[in-house]
Design a protein around this nucleic acid. Structure first.
Lengths: 183, 183
DNA sequence: GCCCACGCGAGACAATTTGTCTAGACTGCG
DNA sequence: CGCAGTCTAGACAAATTGTCTCGCGTGGGC
């Protein structure tokens, strides 16, 4: 254990609040839930919640930042094979699917969510440029094609609408990537 | 002119309100705007606005319904050639790009927007099934590939992130569709 | 032509929600 | 031991939504 008892106690409260937010996001009801109800679910007073997070937006912000610690996201950055990279992209999307649906679906409304989408998209473009460069393909069309292919929206479409499994989605993406890169 | 003067007067108010909502959506600020401010921009009292639309959500609902009259959307349904269909899909997305960004970006928050996305996606799938059927391709993979390709998110990605023109986007989609359908 | 209904504006109103603030209880750090 | 940190309870202002009433003007129907 790290820190004094006080610090631990404090961080327990913080984590309980974040867990409540996360569970509400997963249930798809966070955006209709008041701050008071979030506090109640966390088993914490509203005052405590505001002591940790100054506003409602800060709650979403904290959830977004928590993705930086997601192992699937970390693994992603160290991958230099396109097929493997696509697999790991799928791993990441699926590891946070329910939460990301809510955040991507609120990007026009919530600055924190908008920020997340923006950052993740930029990162993905950077990695794709690197991967394509290694393949000797730095044309914009290939980049565009793969950017769309590896997007959360594409993942979601394949997963939800067509009911494919995680593995199937990865396989579809890999096959399509090959088709799109062939010329 | 149709209807009595009273009816016309009433419908003028209604249209002014919708125009205000639309302009706010295009500016990307609707979701931070109060009903009072919408009324003010429409040059109408808040009471009048509530007389026409019972709630804030009804405003978004009305905008969504207005798409049914969009000529690009009507033309879409009567097209049976895939390349032409893709062109017209792009026409439609681009004809309402700014508004759709806001609506698709609020689908997780706003029931009316969620409804719109759901309906448009379902329609698109139906049309694609028909088009693919005519090509003798009713496998799920082809459907998945084209569904993603013809989505608003894909359009937006190509248009915004890569700065392609409307014509370029259509050309990219057509090329990718050919690549994806080849085997 | 008269009268009423309609469409509108002004504004009051209750109900929610957000974010801030104060007071007080408990406890562990120094 | 005393003080500081963490929490709860609850009051509070401010903003917003949606409903309501009142009064005004005018156009429609008789």
């Amino acid at each position: 254990m790290y820190g004094t008892r006080r610090q631990r106690r404090r961080s327990v409260s913080r984590e309980r609040i974040l867990a409540a937010v996360r569970s509400l996001l997963e249930e798809g009801t966070f955006h209709e839930t008041t701050v008071g109800e979030v506090a109640e679910r966390a088993g914490v007073s509203r005052a405590t919640l505001y002591g940790h997070f100054g506003s409602r937006l800060a709650l979403v912000d904290a959830i977004c930042e928590s993705f930086n610690a997601n192992p699937a996201l970390v693994a992603l950055r160290e991958t230099d094979d396109l097929d493997l990279w696509l697999e790991r992209v799928v791993d990441f999307w699926s590891s946070e699917e329910k939460v990301l649906v809510q955040l991507y679906g609120a990007a026009a409304v919530d600055p924190a969510a908008r920020n997340l989408v923006e950052r993740q998209t930029r990162d993905r473009y950077g990695e794709l440029r690197k991967l394509l460069g290694a393949l000797g393909r730095d044309d914009g069309d290939a980049l565009a094609a793969l950017a769309v292919l590896s997007s959360f929206e594409t993942y979601l479409e394949l997963r939800r609408r067509l009911g494919s499994s995680k593995r199937q989605v990865a396989a579809i993406l890999q096959r399509q990537a090959r088709a799109l890169l062939a010329r």
